[in-house]
Structures are given as C-alpha cells and as structure tokens.
C-alpha cells in the first residue's frame, strides 16, 4: 500500500507501487486534470506539482512519492473557486481543445511559486517543455501575465 498526499489529503493506494502517478490520479482518485499525452516526458500534458515543483506524472512511480505534497489542477483553487491562475486562463479564454491546458497551468504555477513576477522571456523559457498543438500559446502567455498582474495587485499569496 502506498500513501499519497494529494491536494492536502492522504489517500491509500493499493496496487502496484511502480504505477506512474498519472494513472493513479486519473483512475484511482478520479482526478481529470493531468492528461496522458506521451508517457515519455516530452509534452507536459501530465504535469502536476510535487513539493511545489512541476513534474511529469507519467514518469513518476507512486512508490517514490510518499510523504511528498502532490498538487493537481483540482487542488489549485480554494472552496470550489478557481485559483488566480485558473481565473486568468478563463478570462483570457486561453484554450482551444483545452487538453494541454491543465499541464500548462500547473507548469506556470510552478514558475510563479519560484518567482512572483517573471519576465516574458523567463515565462517562454520556463514553459518550453509543454506542448500545445492547437496553437493557444499566445493566450497562455497572456493568461500567465494577467495572473502575475492580478496576484500582484491583490497581493495574493501565490497558490501552492
């Protein structure tokens, strides 16, 4: 049995401890945010935060995650309200098919956790591992910039 802390709650997972986190999140915990894109660490669709840093959940067995804080898209907001970053994505209508967007949001959150006001070049460099095929990139950048601004004006704590 493996005990995972996901979005602040502990879950006991029976089953193969070699299973990558992605499948446990999606199937055992019924969380839809993280998506299967490649299973190879090449696209970022499966990105979640582990101890506030973005990781590819498709390549991380649950056995190495005990005692660590896992945050998924579902864990960003509070009390059913979307987080500032999610809100910014919605306001900017930053999605086409939207399949890549949860991973984008998680990666961007990882950046904001490190640095509250990254430059445009830093955002582009940091987002490099994540792929979007619909070409929503310009809106994704706008959304991240908007979140930076919103969070600064609201003096909001960065959401973990």
């Amino acid at each position: 049995m493996t005990v995972l802390t996901v979005n602040g709650k502990e879950h006991s997972i029976n089953g193969d401890p070699n299973t990558p986190l992605l499948y446990v999140l999606r199937n055992d915990l019924k969380l839809n945010g993280a998506k299967f894109g490649c299973g190879l660490g090449q696209c970022g669709a499966c990105t979640v935060l582990v101890d506030h840093q973005p990781v590819y959940s498709c390549l991380l067995p649950i056995s190495v995650l005990e005692g660590r804080q896992i945050t998924t898209l579902e864990g960003l907001g509070k009390n059913g309200e979307p987080s500032p970053l999610q809100r910014a994505f919605i306001e900017e209508q930053a999605a086409q098919c939207g399949y890549c967007i949860p991973g984008m949001i998680m990666r961007a959150q990882g950046l904001l956790n490190r640095k509250a006001a990254p430059s445009d070049a830093e955002i582009r460099a940091y987002m490099q591992p994540n792929l979007c095929r619909c070409g929503t990139h310009m809106r994704i950048l706008r959304a991240i910039r908007r979140a930076v601004k919103d969070m600064r004006t609201a003096r909001a704590e960065p959401v973990r």
Partner: peptide, 14 residues
C-alpha cells in the same frame, strides 16, 4: 466559451 471553465478546473470534459 461554455466549455472552458470545466476544462480548466478538471471537470470531466473528454
């Protein structure tokens, strides 16, 4: 867009 909030908050969408 009607589908965006659900997709961005992890509602089953696909």
């Amino acid at each position: 867009r009607v589908d965006i909030p659900g997709k961005l908050t992890g509602k089953p969408s696909y």
